[in-house]
Nucleic acid binder design. Structure first.
Lengths: 110, 110
DNA sequence: CGGAAGCGTAACCTACGGGTTACGCGTTCA
DNA sequence: TGAACGCGTAACCCGTAGGTTACGCTTCCG
């Protein structure tokens, strides 16, 4: 979780996450949408990858990046428990987790 | 939201957030639990305050810090929309937001 | 009152994050 | 098969985040 919290601190990395939410993109495609060099984007992607927020699939000389919902879920869960006072039952968090877990299963079995 | 995402990047600030989740604490009380100087903690608290994650109540020469759930909710919502694919209905997010908003109203009318 | 307690801020130093260019390796295709 | 493409990494530079000490302003209390 610590690495993920650090990863989303950078505005470029947050923008990348939004980009690869729905479509898988190559490094070049991502870099083309930013005013910084391709190696810089490559390092941002490395940070996101090592923090578990994105995944990469190699295909020939291309490397496709896509969102990894599991990494996001960790952060999401951390924020949930932080927002939840001591006395409050964690029923809602359990519901949220359950729903996302179900979606994940659906993805994997598709 | 951007400021909040930056604020939680630091491990000390994340620990502070967990500390003031249930009880309001003074700067001295917080600083006593870290191996860094009090001015350093004071600046961390300033970052958290300006990012909307904590609130401060002055009482004499003491300054009590407590969690501000509204700030957390923003980040929480951002992660929710990020985890939610394009086709997915946002019913769950709406439910989550509604529940937290209701709790907030209860706090304010108490 | 005057000193101590509690806190914020300024000034300073250092480590590190993020930018760039240069380079090397694997893959494609004319 | 050799040239071009796609990408990762190393080396380097610079700005800034986060640490410290020194200082000043309120607020409490003997």
């Amino acid at each position: 979780m610590d690495q993920a919290a650090e990863a989303i601190a950078d505005p470029i990395r947050r923008a990348i996450l939004r980009m690869v939410r729905d479509e898988r993109l190559t490094v070049g495609e991502i870099a083309a949408r930013f005013p910084v060099s391709r190696p810089a984007i490559s390092r941002h992607l490395r940070v996101l990858r090592e923090s578990g927020l994105v995944r990469d699939d190699l295909s020939g000389r291309h490397r496709y990046y896509s969102l990894n919902p599991d990494g996001l879920a960790e952060l999401h869960q951390w924020l949930s428990t932080l927002m939840t006072p001591a006395g409050w039952e964690q029923r809602l968090d359990a519901l949220t987790t359950e729903v996302y877990r179900t979606r994940k299963d659906n993805r994997e079995t598709a």
